[in-house]
Structures are given as C-alpha cells and as structure tokens.
Computed example of a mutant assay.
Amino acid sequence: MLVPAVTRVGPVVEKVVQAAEVLQGFITVSRFLDEAQKADVEDILRACVREANTQVDDELFGKGRSLPDSECDKEPVAQKKLAPDWRRHLGKLKHAAAFACIERRLSEKYPNNFAIEPRLRKDEFTQEVLLTDKRAGSLRPDIVLHFTRNITRIQCIYDLKFPCGYSVGANPWSDEVIVQMTAYGALGGECLPALVTPQRGVVRK
C-alpha cells in the first residue's frame, strides 16, 4: 500500500525542487552587480568614452588631431549644427558615439542592470526615486547602474564629460559640475556619482 503513495509523492517533490531552483535563480539574477561586475562596467565606460573622443576628433579634424582651445567657444563649421559653439557641438557628438558603444557592450553582459539617460525625480513626500517623462524637478544622468529590471533602485550614477581643446589635464570638477553631481548623489545609490572622461577615466570627488 505504501509503494503507490511514494510513487505519487515523487512528481510533487520534483516540482517543489524545480520551484526552489527557479526561485534561487531569480534571487541570484535579481540583484545589484557585485564589485567585480561593477569594475567591469567601469572598464567598459572608460574604453567607450576614450574611443568616442578619438573617433569624433579623427573624423572631424584628422587622425590624432583635436580642436584648439581657441576655437571651443566659436560657432561650429558643420552642415548640421547641434549647438551654437564647438564645445557643446562636440560634446553632443561624443556623447552619442559613447552611448552607442556603451549600449552595445553592456547589453551583452548586463542587459537588465543599466540605463542610458533615464529621467528621474525624488518624490518630496515619500523620498522615493521615480521614473518620469517631465523635465520640471527631474534629473537625467548619463548612465545609471541599478537593481535588476528596476531603474529606480540605483546602484551607481556616471556622467560623461568631454573636455574641449588641448587642455586634457584640466580639472573636470568645476563648480557647476560639483552642483550637478551633488544633485545626482541626492537620488541615492551604493556609491558616489562619478565622472568619466577620456583623459582621467572614472573619477569621484
């Protein structure tokens, strides 16, 4: 009489084990990136920012050349002007090239743990971070690392900066940038917001 009972219990036990394995898989996948993975992401950000900077300069000014400092605030000589001066025009071009590189490379490894230019705001009453499409009272960081499939649970924020001209050693931490990064820090996260530049890589204040 006991044998049929054991036979009936078999599939039930198997389903319980399968459910536990699925749950364990969900727990393993649904998380923040670990330190090694975060370091890998930052290596990708450094590489993409350097490549974008070189690619745009080479295409516009010739291989190994860049715009002189004296031209940065002048009107760009371009068929399609993206900004009224070279500094911002180049910044837009280099951001676009870097974003394409970052999207491609991070999507291969961490497709559910990053977002490019999400618009976020912090609710003044609940203090929760919310995804929004409204500009007023919101911020739009360049790159956000986040909990799996949850943009509003922030792990780290990165902002790409492309200095104009030959002043490659210039300090990127202007007063304006400090204010910007302080605002990003108020959104929360596990690490301080970081700048990513072609010359200095990932830097935190």
Rank of each mutant, 00 (worst) to 15 (best):
N112V: 07
R204H: 05
A52K: 02
E117S: 01
V144E: 13
A194C: 08
R149Y: 14
P163K: 05
R65C: 06
G137F: 15
G64S: 01
E128H: 06
C48A: 05
P68F: 07
F162D: 09
L90W: 08
H146Y: 13
V56N: 03
A52C: 12
Y184V: 00
L23C: 13
A78W: 03
I178L: 06
K63C: 08
K205I: 13
H89S: 00
L82H: 02
R149S: 12
G185C: 02
I116W: 06
I27H: 10
P68C: 09
D34N: 10
I154H: 09
V49K: 05
V179G: 04
R46I: 14
V29C: 11
K74E: 14
K134P: 04
R153E: 09
L145R: 05
Q55W: 12
R135Y: 15
V144Q: 13
V129M: 05
S167N: 12
F26I: 11
G25P: 11
G201T: 11
R204M: 09
N53H: 15
A183S: 11
G188H: 08
A183T: 10
T7K: 14
L45Y: 03
T197G: 13
F99K: 00
G188N: 04
K122P: 02
L187I: 00
Q127C: 04
A47Y: 10
G25Y: 02
K80D: 10
Q24E: 13
F125Q: 13
A83W: 07
K134R: 09
D43Q: 13
I154M: 03
N113E: 08
Q55I: 00
D85N: 11
R140P: 01
E35Q: 09
R8E: 06
V29Q: 14
I116N: 03
V6A: 05
I102S: 09
A19H: 10
E124M: 07
T7N: 10
Q55H: 05
D85W: 07
I27M: 06
D133L: 05
A47N: 14
P163N: 10
L82E: 02
C101W: 06
P84F: 14
L2V: 13
V6E: 08
G62C: 01
